[in-house]
Design a protein around this nucleic acid. Structure first.
Lengths: 212, 212, 212, 212
DNA sequence: CATGAATGAGTATTCATTCAT
DNA sequence: TATGAATGAATACTCATTCAT
């Protein structure tokens, strides 16, 4: 009759509580790692911040490194979700590109911890881990390249190898994220997105120079 | 008490020897810091590599941090020299842009320690130091903006704010350097420079789409 | 307030079940403590081995230390039982000595965990506990000394203080147990017993040397 | 002219000072390890005791374990030296046996840290290290067996396999050392040596029983 | 009765820097 | 000048024990 066999009695693991706490730990970890850097972030301080024992942290993440990498993954996941959400319902691929660029810049401006964690990841684990950022980027690139192909077929984009476009746009956004983070934001994200779109879409040459 | 207070006895400091050894230290430091990262680089190992005592290192650089920052500065200086050399005797500003982009990519491909040191600098001294890269970039940017202004005056480049151009190109190159370094080089620098120049000069839109 | 304060509700404690589980715990504890040593034996691993929760262990033994000491006691008890059993029905005291020596060596050869637990006990609880081994030995010594007295009275054994005999024989067996355990068994227990009995009974001197 | 090339200037390593300090460290380590046991001995406390920095300890011994094992070796070495010294100039092999037994017991009575370190060694490094004691014992055993052989040839000792004698005597002394250490000394070493020699030399059987 | 989630005290080791020689 | 012996601060992780369920 009872759907749960209840073979085991005793204090049960509450999966929801478990997942919630995991999230709380990650959230705090993202903040502390970004604020102090990986080596200066003390697990004791993290535990104190969360009002839990250090042992609890280690119940959820087997090591400081695992926790850190999970934190990096979490912020990258949220960036991807933000971008995906921003193009939902948009049919025009060119508009999708515009929105994605805008959302990317707005997200990283609002979440500077992303840039910091990516830096820390590379600096601390240079030989141990393919950078999380490029794992995500590789996973998404093909979808964008398909959109470029479609637009080339429609005659809206010049007939150039789509890898060229996706690489240039990808590297430009990547460089812009760090340049903004390191020098302080130079412009509101919206304007910056316009600048990027202007150059990438139209190039810098004048009409006459183009046709030389 | 000392009869010759103003006259140095013993071996006089040889400025040339001094400068040469300083260079040797920096060169080895660049290599080790790039190979192992800042925290994993042991002053003892550096001393052993150079066959000198640890104390000698501290005669030339007051601390590990100073040594590291001098090493970063050294590689940035060399990058600038390479770029400056590549445009000597070139009069056409557009060609100067082409050459600079090409040289930048070729240099960082040949000197991956540059990217590594820049990462390490940011990760370890996030709050203590304006990034060396952006000091150099800021110092050069105005010269490039002037060239863009000239070309706009000549009608060779579209009339857009020159900051927009210099920022986009600068961020794109910066992002490309790291993307290459992190993912492994994707193309020979020459081809990659062509790709970048193609997009930045002409944009991705087709003729018809541009005029919509 | 409780209507049945004196009457236990729910499942009554089953003393037999209780004792059986206590035995199971001890048995597994003996194995793990001997295999990994006291500090390296994890209560969690013990619980997992027994397929019970950690809390259950603490229902039977108030602490890891108590459990360990109970485990030591258990193996010592079994050694005593084996020796006692081996001399049941033997009337000749000299034969009793022979059998006891033989059984002792055979038992510790078959149960190396005994030696290991005795070592661990001393190393970990050097100041907290009189060694279990010597508690047992003291408890048995008088019976052996009586047998020696009888044999001296019968003229079968030389007239030396019986403490001398019991100490030498006791220490010899004790040393042999550890030497066997640490270096690996050097001979079958039966032969080793013969060797010991030969020396202890007859001494090493030749007839002529004895009478000098 | 100068015998020392003095290629290297700077603070020279003083080998004598070095060796002296190494001895001081070992001496203090023997004391502390024996007093508190291996796991409870804090390297910080050892450094404080010696009024040196912790780093200095690690200049002389690469790890706590290495230091401990060196300490064990040191006390075993001293035991062997004491025994060797006690038989220098003694020609009668039977007297050598007597003196060695006596010296052994006197030494371990005066140096209880020997027993404690041997226990600790076995308990902590059960699987990592052949017990130091048995390394030494094996190295010496052959010399004793040769002496037994000589005496058998002279008709002073019964014709039994010499391994039997060396094993029984060796195990007896080993067991006596620990029994004394664990239960507290039962007799002065001199008397105890006499007891052992009496039994081992003459056996316990009476004249009549021997000839049955 | 049984469970296992939560806790937090405790410690070996490294390495930048100093300064006696 | 050059050396390298000496220093000591700083930190992740384990595991026995408890107690809410």
């Amino acid at each position: 009759m009872n759907a749960t066999p209840a073979k085991k009695v005793g204090r049960p693991a509450d999966p929801a509580r478990c997942a919630r706490r995991r999230e709380e730990i990650l959230e705090a970890a993202v903040r502390l790692f970004a604020e102090h850097g990986y080596p200066e972030t003390d697990m004791q301080v993290l535990a104190d911040t969360l009002r839990v024992g250090k042992g609890t942290l280690y119940r959820y993440f087997p090591s400081k490194q695992d926790l850190f990498l999970a934190a990096v993954d979490r912020v990258m996941l949220k960036l991807r979700e933000a971008i995906d959400a921003s193009i939902v319902g948009i049919d025009d691929p060119l508009e999708q590109v515009r929105r994605a660029i805008h959302t990317y810049l707005a997200y990283v401006a609002a979440h500077p911890e992303l840039a910091e964690l990516l830096i820390q990841e590379r600096a601390q684990f240079k030989d141990r881990k393919k950078p999380t950022y490029f794992e995500y980027r590789a996973a998404n690139a093909e979808r964008w390249r398909n959109r470029y192909r479609v637009m080339i077929g429609q005659g809206r984009i010049r007939d150039v190898p789509v890898e060229r476009i996706s690489n240039v746009v990808g590297d430009l956004l990547y460089g812009t994220m760090f340049a903004n983070y390191f020098t302080g934001p130079r412009k509101p994200p919206a304007e910056q997105a316009q600048d990027i779109i202007d150059i990438v879409f139209h190039g810098i040459l004048s009409e006459s120079e183009r046709h030389r």
